[in-house]
């Protein structure tokens, strides 16, 4: 099968939800980098307190699409957005929506662990501090400790909160970044290939953590590893060349995919 960048695929499976679980709803999203159309007419619903994973080959637009949800694309030059994304029914691309306020509601974890070159404490305390979430030092301490506990890191670092965050191992750094993200008590956490720079043991810890976090947060994870998508997510979306090819329950996607491309991808025939 010959495919070109001009192809647009109709989304199959169950992209839209019709029950009350919708947290994020995207309609006809198109993203352009200059002349290039990076996201093509994507419509999908993301369910509340569930893990949704985005899979697909490199350059398929899954990270770009993820960055649309907290408007990180705003900072990229030449990037143009069309369409509609609502969170709890509120249009985030509305002119009255403040991207800073939006990002306080949506935590983000990046591909490469990127703790600030400050102490572990300061890393976690930074978000609550700039938003003024703590009235005094003890409240701030509590937020930092709770966030580190939720990220499963507190026991490992409780004696070295004043050590630089960059002195931790890669897996610990990534969990520190997760603690930093949940310190502002977001509703949604976006994860852009959070385990791609980690070894299998650190990866397993993060996956365990994601499973715990989903009770309180809506999580979207972009991943290259299909096993990871199968392990941690309830719903899976398969992207290809900027199109959303198929969205369905993770089980269905991995056991009985509808689209031939999805089938080829998950069985490793291409990608």
């Amino acid at each position: 099968m010959v495919m070109s960048h001009d192809d647009i695929f109709e989304t199959v499976g169950k992209p839209l939800l019709n029950d009350g679980r919708i947290k994020i709803s995207c309609r006809n999203v198109n993203v352009y980098y200059g002349e290039k159309r990076a996201i093509k007419d994507v419509s999908v619903d993301i369910a509340e307190k569930e893990v949704t994973s985005f899979i697909g080959p490199s350059g398929c637009g899954k990270s770009t699409f993820l960055c649309c949800i907290n408007r990180m694309n705003d900072t990229i030059k030449d990037c143009r957005f069309e369409g509609n994304i609502t969170i709890d029914g509120e249009n985030i691309y509305d002119r009255t929506m403040d991207p800073v306020l939006l990002r306080a509601r949506i935590g983000m974890v990046f591909q490469k662990p990127n703790p600030f070159p400050k102490s572990i404490y300061q890393n976690v305390a930074y978000g609550p501090r700039i938003h003024g979430l703590a009235r005094n030092k003890s409240e701030l301490d509590e937020i930092v400790i709770t966030s580190l506990e939720k990220a499963g890191l507190f026991n490992e670092v409780k004696d070295q909160l004043d050590h630089p965050g960059t002195s931790l191992s890669g897996g610990q750094q990534q969990r520190l970044c997760i603690a930093r993200a949940i310190s502002v008590q977001p509703e949604i956490i976006l994860m852009d290939e959070p385990c791609s720079a980690l070894d299998p043991i650190a990866t397993a810890k993060i996956e365990e953590l994601i499973d715990e976090l989903r009770q309180n947060y809506t999580i979207i994870i972009v991943t290259h590893s299909m096993q990871q998508a199968a392990r941690v997510s309830q719903r899976t979306a398969f992207f290809h060349l900027g199109s959303l090819v198929e969205v369905d329950d993770t089980n269905t996607i991995f056991v009985n995919p509808e689209h031939r491309l999805t089938q080829d991808y998950i069985t490793g025939r291409y990608g």
């Binding site: 990180m72 800073v100 600030f116 070159p117 970044c177």
Partner: peptide, 27 residues
């Protein structure tokens, strides 16, 4: 200064001014 530092600051909801003043400039 690596872009990941700016992204990290923006990701927790810092304004661009804050991400520059608190993180990029000291580095």
């Amino acid at each position: 200064v690596p872009p990941s530092i700016r992204a990290g600051a923006l990701g927790v909801g810092a304004s661009r001014m804050q991400s520059v003043l608190h993180h990029v400039l000291p580095l």
